[in-house]
Design a protein around this nucleic acid. Structure first.
Lengths: 226, 226
DNA sequence: CGATCGCTTGAGTAGGATCAACAAGAGTGG
DNA sequence: CCACTCTTGTTGATCCTACTCAAGCGATCG
């Protein structure tokens, strides 16, 4: 972990992010005032479950995996954050981290003092509003994950993930690049890496071709049938 | 479903609830101004997944089950709310219900206009603050569920549920009454009713005695070992 | 060129879902 | 008060999914 200076491209990452994008420029600048940047390499730990955190985090680049640890040491991902996403926001009010955070690849992270942000939210209705919407969105994401876990099989979860990455049009065939390692995707979907691999194997019969991180879909309807 | 009048005991339910309890009395009264009460009997549906909801709900008595429905019609609970809890709050900002809601027993529900509440949150920092804390708490709850699903076996989940209902002291033996039907608990824990039954069966060997809705624990340490 | 890493594939296993039968209450109505 | 039914929960048997462990394969890197 190493501290560094904010670039202008970092600034646009902030300004176009879901959270900061809704706020007036001046407010954002006031917040960015005391942002502290740091880099992490793959497998670096940002904090541990139960740590008392005094910061809110924001991904400028890379990928952060949020996970809980069971008594036997097994890990379960509860969320994965990439460029432009904010996390550990709930520690702002809960005081302690509800999960551990690890860089799933080399990452640049910005950090804000949570007390100051909380103060700002109390003073500026825009900020409060942004927080509320952000939390609603986060809540829906976790609810989605939970429902997927409980309702879908491994193959269905993967199919649904692929479909969520397809353009809205009616094109029956398209392709995209996985934004991270397959093992990370497996974690995010609540699967062992082997199960993900087998799911891809099954989907191959339905016109899904996987080459490295490139996913090609040739028959979208077949996917939707799962 | 039937509308009715608010009683003074309803009022104290509001005032002592997690959400309204943090707000000054005058604010609460202003909100309660246009609360609409209605009763539901068991299995009544309050709304369906995807409905566009213009209300925020509050449980005055009874039990509401929030669930998603899979393509095959199977249901998966994402939350269960009892007296004093607010729900469907995220529809305030998302517009549509992310899940269906059903009364798991006869219930009395209060309803508020979400537009008005949203307005109030924008104007009154206290209300915004209360919403933020409420959403943080809700987020943690769902995260807990997700982590439990991914890390614990059926028996462990039940043991953990029981322990979460035990007094903080060091008493090794205690008992409590299930606040709802076992089938509801099964749903909440993401289990088939049969699996819950078998889990209780397993726990019997560790000093857990179940008589109807009464749970007796005789060896707390044995439970914690799971 | 070995070595490591990320992924795939195979075989065995465990946990829980499903289906079905059954027991124990709780109402209901005569 | 008793028979009847409906509901709720338990238990048994079977099956299926996904986990675990282990081996193999290809790519990348020193």
């Amino acid at each position: 972990m190493k501290t560094l200076q904010m670039t202008s491209s970092d600034r646009t990452t902030f300004l176009t992010s879901r959270f900061f994008g809704r706020l007036p420029c001046s407010t954002v600048d006031a917040i960015l005032e005391d942002a502290r940047l740091s880099t992490f390499k793959e497998h670096d730990i940002l904090f541990h479950q139960g740590d008392s955190i005094v910061d809110v985090f924001f991904v400028l680049s890379g990928l952060i995996r949020l996970y809980r640890v069971g008594k036997d040491g097994r890990q379960a991902d509860v969320a994965v954050f990439s460029k432009g996403e904010m996390f550990a926001d709930n520690t702002m009010y809960l005081g302690r981290a509800t999960a551990s955070a690890e860089a799933a690849e080399a990452s640049v992270i910005a950090r804000f003092d949570s007390a100051k942000l909380r103060q700002l939210a109390a003073a500026d209705p825009d900020v409060a509003q942004a927080f509320i919407e952000h939390l609603c969105h986060r809540g829906k994401m976790t609810e989605d994950l939970l429902a997927q876990d409980r309702l879908l099989t491994a193959t269905q979860r993967v199919a649904s993930y692929i479909l969520s990455h397809c353009p809205n049009g009616t094109a029956t065939s398209f392709s995209f690049r996985l934004p991270f390692q397959k093992s990370v995707l497996a974690g995010k979907l609540g699967l062992a890496p082997e199960a993900l691999s087998r799911a891809f194997s099954t989907l191959r019969r339905s016109g899904v071709i996987v080459k490295g991180r490139i996913i090609e879909i040739h028959d979208r309807l077949a996917l939707e049938r799962f």
